[in-house]
Every structure is written in C-alpha cells, then in structure tokens.
C-alpha cells in the first residue's frame, strides 16, 4: 500500500535513474518524510544484497536465461505486453475487415462493357503503307501492314464524305475502275482501315491518312 507519492521514486533514486532536479527534490523529501526514508533504507539493503550476492541467489534464473538465449519468437512476443498484442491483433482484424469486407461492398456494381461496331477489342492500330501524302496518279492499290491470318479488313475512302468502301482478307485491295475514275487530281482524299476478328469484333483501326493526287506535267 503506497502511503506517500514519493515512494515511487525510491527505486529510481537508489538506481541513479532520476534527473538532477528530481533527485534533489527527492533528497529534500526524505529529509522530511520518515516513512520514505525508512522504506528507502530497507530497499537499499535489498538492492545491495542482490548486487553483491546476486550470482549465488539467482543461479536458477541465470542458468535459465543462459540456456534460453531468447528464441526469435520470444523476442518478438516480448516486444509488446499481452494487452498490447491483443490490441494490435484487433486493429489488424478491423483493418482487414475494412479492406476486404466493407470497401468492396461500397463499390459493388462493376462497370459493364458492351461492344458495338465502333469499339476496338484488341486495341491495336494498323499501319497504312500507301498511298500517303502526295501521289502522282490516282492509286490503283491500297496497302497496309498485315495483322496476321483470319483478319478481315474494311477499307474506307473519303473525299469529304465516304466515297467507297471495300472488304478483303488480305493486306492490300485494288480499287475498282469506276471509283478510280471518280477521283481527280488536286483533290484531298483520305482513307482508313478497320480490322475484324472472325467473330466479327473490331480488333484494330488505323488512323485516317490523307493523300493528294498531283500529276506530273
């Protein structure tokens, strides 16, 4: 039973663990408090016996500690008191519940994707080879880089609006004669290619490239 609030300082004083001010305060205190003085004398005696004879008194403890040498899990375990461990475990559990239990339910409706004819499934692009920029005569063939087998290409040729469209499974297409006749020099044209998988999904799309027919004179 603690009778004086200074009693708590006895050990720290005797073990030289007080700051200078606290030490002086405590010293002044025990000059005035017989209770603390007597407790301190008793404790000092105990400490000096332990310090001088500890090796013989604590042989069991000493040996136990030497042989134990604190396995790693023991040192981890002793990092916290059991109460702190319990707190850490509860915190971790709550954290996991929030992360895996609560947050997913907040955002349960996952986004839905509908593929229409304008959506690209594979997200590749098609490199167009010719015609590009300026050409000397009305082109008879349109060529692009192949994306592999079993791909169907749609070719679109525009003036200001779409003037022709064709379909092929190769990476080149020949323009029909009547369409060539429609094309005149000094006009801007553009073209693009779309690639479709056998199932009919759009898998790649080229950029729209312009070209102009400049005949040599």
């Amino acid at each position: 039973m603690i009778k004086c609030k200074f009693e708590d300082l006895i050990d720290d004083y005797l073990l030289n663990r007080l700051s200078e001010t606290n030490r002086e305060n405590f010293e002044e205190h025990y000059f005035n408090c017989t209770h603390c003085y007597e407790k301190m004398v008793e404790r000092e005696e105990l400490i000096s016996v332990i310090k001088n004879k500890g090796y013989t008194i604590f042989q069991d403890e000493y040996l136990a500690e030497e042989t134990k040498r604190v396995p790693w899990f023991e040192s981890v375990r002793s990092y916290f008191t059991p109460r702190q461990w319990a707190f850490a475990a509860v915190s971790a559990a709550l954290f996991l519940i929030v992360i895996f239990g609560v947050i997913p339910t907040l955002n349960r409706t996952s986004p839905q994707f509908y593929i229409n004819n304008e959506d690209v499934v594979r997200g590749e692009s098609i490199t167009l080879i010719s015609p590009l920029i300026d050409i000397k005569s009305v082109p008879s063939q349109f060529k692009w880089k192949s994306l592999g087998k079993n791909v169907e290409y749609n070719i679109y040729i525009y003036n200001e609006k779409l003037i022709w469209t064709g379909t092929t499974k190769e990476n080149v297409i020949t323009l029909p004669e009547e369409v060539r006749k429609l094309m005149t020099s000094d006009q801007k044209y553009s073209w693009k290619v779309k690639a479709f998988s056998p199932e009919g999904f759009l898998i790649a799309i080229s950029s729209r490239v312009q070209f102009k027919i400049i005949p040599t004179k």
């Binding site: 332990i50 310090k51 500890g54 604590f58």
Partner: peptide
C-alpha cells in the same frame, strides 16, 4: 546479508525473476 539472500531464495520464481531482472 546472508539472511536476506536466503530469504530471496525462498521467494516464488515470479518474484525472484523480477528482482533478478530489475536489480541484478
């Protein structure tokens, strides 16, 4: 001192252990 040392040896392990770690 012998008397005290003998008395400490008679204490339960949990008390001895505490004295050992704290003072010794």
């Amino acid at each position: 001192a012998e008397l005290i040392a003998g008395a400490i040896k008679k204490l339960k392990p949990k008390y001895r252990e505490t004295l050992y770690l704290y003072y010794y």
